[in-house]
């Protein structure tokens, strides 16, 4: 395929993905808006003033970056895992398999779809947060780059989950038993400096901690970890997961007999 044909194929997948999650907005865009609003009300407005400062900021200000990232992570993952698995389940994946579109374009298209939903939900949550606090931006470049890279990373994670999933139960196991605990323990609601030294060390093994702290640095200028290390971790995970996803696609794992 020529470069132009590849671009058309890529845009086709992205448009299809965006059309899918906007068509079912009540399942994809509305629930995170309601859930995160409740977090803002309960943890920020009701409990937050009793907690006092966290990382040198009001508690509400401290949790906003974490909650935005939490919604980006869960939605970028959920979009790709549910969309790609549905394609397998309904055999629609055959539409792509019979076509000449290269595997890396397929992967890039689905990841872009996941990023689009992650950013869309992230934007909605950010706008909602403005009703509860005055959002400051310490470093716009860090904010934008971290949120996009994180969405890419978890879209890739969702893709790998979908490749191996054989039934609908399989697409909820990782989000429930891996993603949610890691997100909650990744410094959304607290600074790891509050933890005993042993648990601080353990927490450093949680990749989500790096993303949330990097994003928090972009907004508030505070972070529990070094920003350079955070970027390094995110990029390393992206390279590893992208390579693995592409290898799975080239081998036809889960999609070809």
């Amino acid at each position: 395929m020529s470069a132009r044909e590849k671009w058309v194929a890529f845009i086709t997948i992205v448009i299809k993905e965006v059309r899918r999650f906007t068509r079912i907005w009540a399942q994809t865009l509305l629930p995170p808006a309601i859930t995160i609003s409740l977090y803002f009300v309960i943890f920020g407005n009701l409990i937050g003033p009793r907690i006092g400062k966290m990382g040198g900021h009001d508690y509400m200000d401290f949790i906003v970056p974490g909650l935005i990232m939490m919604s980006v992570i869960t939605n970028s993952y959920a979009n790709v895992v549910s969309s790609f698995f549905s394609m397998k389940f309904q055999h629609c994946i055959e539409e792509i398999l019979v076509s000449p579109v290269p595997n890396w374009i397929v992967l890039a298209g689905y990841v872009a779809g996941g990023v689009a939903r992650g950013l869309c939900v992230g934007l909605i949550v950010t706008l909602l947060s403005l009703a509860f606090t005055d959002l400051q931006v310490h470093h716009l470049g860090v904010v934008v780059s971290v949120v996009i890279l994180t969405a890419v990373l978890f879209s890739l994670g969702g893709f790998i989950n979908a490749v191996f999933a054989n039934k609908f139960d399989d697409i909820s196991i990782v989000p429930t038993f891996v993603l949610t605990p890691l997100t909650y323990l990744g410094g959304v609601f607290y600074s790891i400096s509050l933890l005993p030294e042993f648990w601080q060390t353990i927490s450093l093994g949680n990749p989500i901690l790096y993303m949330i702290n990097a994003f928090r640095y972009g907004l508030l200028g505070v972070s529990d970890i070094d920003i350079g290390i955070a970027y390094g971790m995110i990029l390393l995970f992206i390279v590893v997961l992208f390579s693995y996803s592409l290898w799975l696609l080239n081998r036809g794992v889960g999609i070809r007999k």
């Binding site: 044909e5 997948i13 448009i15 059309r19 068509r23 309904q90 055959e94 539409e95």
Partner: peptide, 20 residues
């Protein structure tokens, strides 16, 4: 093997897009 929730026209146009 098409998405039952997509519109007929979109299904056909999307397939053409996969061919560039």
């Amino acid at each position: 093997n098409f998405n039952q929730f997509e519109k007929v026209f979109d299904i056909v146009v999307t397939q053409a897009g996969y061919y560039g």
